[in-house]
Computed example of a mutant assay.
Amino acid sequence: MGESALVTGASGFLGGHVVRDLRAHGYAVTAAGRRAAALPEGATFVGDLDDLARFDLPVDVVVHCAALSSPWGRWSEFEHANVTGTARAFEYARRVGARRFVHVSSPGIYAAPRDRVAIREHEVDPSRPMNHYIRSKLHAEALLRAASGRSDRSDRNDRNDRPEVVVLRPRGIIGPGDPALVPRLLRVHERVGVPLMHGGRGLVDLTAVENVALAVRLAAEVPEAAGRAFNITNGDPRPFVDLLDQLLTGLGLPLRHRRLPARVVYGVAGLLEAVCGVLPGRPEPPVTRYTVSTITHSQTLDITRAREVLGYEPTVTLDESLASYASGADRA
């Protein structure tokens, strides 16, 4: 296509995949991130999002992957990284004349301590975020709606000098090199065994990282995507226990489960959060209410809009992604 892009968070798991996918499809990509050694080869910008104010390279598209993602932490840290950081990235896109700003948000904004199935993009309740990370992602999306002069239902013929915004909400990103989702599960498995509430039958939506990179590229290119938000998953929700056992089997690990009552575990998690919240340094609790909710209750996303507007169809299956992770772990 001959277009140019800047990808924030390019030293991270998703950002690195996005950089490689865009380059494979003809984009001239500047990879922006704080960890120089982890940035993909090629044109790079080393620094945090505040440093973008001193960078003037014109690009057609800005893809904002950078974020502080954790179930625990101080609000000030999440606000600076995910709210102020998003404002910095959008201001850069506006200043250099980018036509589109693709923002990687989170389906955590749908989280609730109950089953939610086939969630559509508009089904967000911003009044009760389950943690500071989710609160910061809600604030970032609201900031972009205000800054771009658009909303999910706005007039897409409205033209101004600000970049068009597209928001993606990818669920449970997995694949080779995953530094967060699977490693967290494996640490719990090694220590005590993964807790299963309701028999682990709650449905989980996951997304192969390659499919998220595909969705990012489509969000950058499809004209009709402007001003809209899109759920992104593999479209293949499965019971948590089935995915867990498939992963452990692939890694050659024993199937260690702990069947526990959900209400008790949720209460213990709340108590641990209260205790850790007043300890020096506010250490992360062994388990949080948000984490308990994600493995207890079904949460699946409806990706009809992504299919119909973006033309998105997953190209890497969950089975392939889990096998690829296991293979990479073996090599490591």
Rank of each mutant, 00 (worst) to 15 (best):
Ala81Gln: 05
Ala81Cys: 09
Asn82Gln: 08
Val83His: 02
Thr84Ser: 11
Gly85Ser: 11
Gly85Trp: 06
Thr86Asn: 00
Ala87Thr: 12
Arg88Gln: 11
Arg88Thr: 05
Ala89Glu: 05
Phe90His: 00
Glu91Met: 07
Tyr92Leu: 04
Ala93Met: 05
Arg94Tyr: 08
Val96Lys: 03
Gly97Ala: 06
Gly97Cys: 10
Ala98Ile: 01
His103Met: 09
His103Pro: 10
Val104Trp: 13
Tyr110Arg: 15
Asp115Glu: 10
Arg116Leu: 15
Ala118Arg: 15
Glu121Ala: 02
Glu121Tyr: 07
Glu121Phe: 07
His122Val: 03
His122Gln: 11
Glu123Ala: 06
Glu123His: 09
Val124His: 14
Pro126Gln: 07
Ser127Tyr: 06
Ser127Asp: 10
Arg128Met: 14
Asn131Val: 15
Ile134Pro: 02
Ile134Arg: 03
Ser136Gln: 00
Lys137His: 02
Lys137Val: 01
Leu138Glu: 13
Leu138Asp: 10
Ala140Glu: 02
Ala142Cys: 08
Leu143Asn: 00
Ser151Arg: 05
Arg153His: 04
Arg156Cys: 02
Arg156Ala: 03
Asn157His: 13
Asp158Gly: 09
Asp158Asn: 14
Arg159Thr: 15
Asp161Met: 12
Val167Phe: 01
Leu168Trp: 01
Leu168His: 06
Leu168Lys: 11
Pro170Tyr: 12
Ile173Cys: 01
Ile174Pro: 07
Pro176Val: 08
Asp178Glu: 06
Asp178Ala: 00
Leu181Asn: 09
Val182Cys: 10
Val182Arg: 10
Pro183Asn: 06
Arg184Met: 13
Arg184Thr: 07
Leu186Thr: 05
Arg187His: 10
Arg187Pro: 07
His189Met: 02
Glu190Tyr: 15
Glu190Pro: 05
Val192Asn: 12
Gly193Met: 06
Val194Tyr: 02
Met197Thr: 14
His198Cys: 10
His198Ser: 14
Gly202Lys: 06
Leu203Asn: 10
Val204Trp: 15
Asp205Asn: 01
Asp205Phe: 15
Asp205Met: 00
Thr207Pro: 14
Thr207Ala: 13
Thr207Phe: 01
Glu210Asn: 11
Ala213Lys: 14
Ala213His: 13
Leu218Tyr: 00
Pro223Leu: 07
Glu224Met: 13
Ala226Arg: 09
Gly227Glu: 06
